[in-house]
């Protein structure tokens, strides 16, 4: 498999730091992940329609996602999840608690 190009979406600039704490809580959230960063979803905050929609799109705990990029104006974000690319706003991404995943020994 060595020849295959590893799917690593532009691994940030410089060292792609750990997902940093969100503004609201002390826990790291998807909103603050750097482009190219791979994360595992820990839990969803928020409730009602927003949460359901996120669950439906596959933002389920223990799923791995890649933060692909933010839109030219910085919001919304593009997230690679499963086989699809999903766009969510930063406010929604702030409700997704994540932990960083090391990509290289994947």
């Amino acid at each position: 498999m060595g020849k295959q190009k590893r799917y690593r979406l532009r691994q940030g600039r410089g060292h792609a730091g750990e997902a940093s704490p969100s503004a609201t809580g002390q826990r790291p959230c998807l909103r603050d992940a750097q482009p190219g960063k791979r994360c595992r979803i820990k839990r969803l905050h928020g409730h009602g329609a927003i949460r359901q929609r996120l669950l439906d799109m596959g933002f389920v705990p223990e799923t791995e996602v890649v933060m692909v990029r933010s839109a030219p104006l910085n919001d919304p974000l593009e997230i690679h999840i499963g086989n699809t690319f999903v766009s969510i706003r930063r406010t929604e991404a702030a409700d997704i608690e994540v932990e960083a995943v090391e990509v290289d020994n994947d």
Binding site: I50, R53, L54, V86, S87
Partner: peptide, 8 residues
């Protein structure tokens, strides 16, 4: 209102 969750 609803969240912006759109598949690309």
């Amino acid at each position: 209102t609803a969240p912006f969750v759109m598949e690309l």
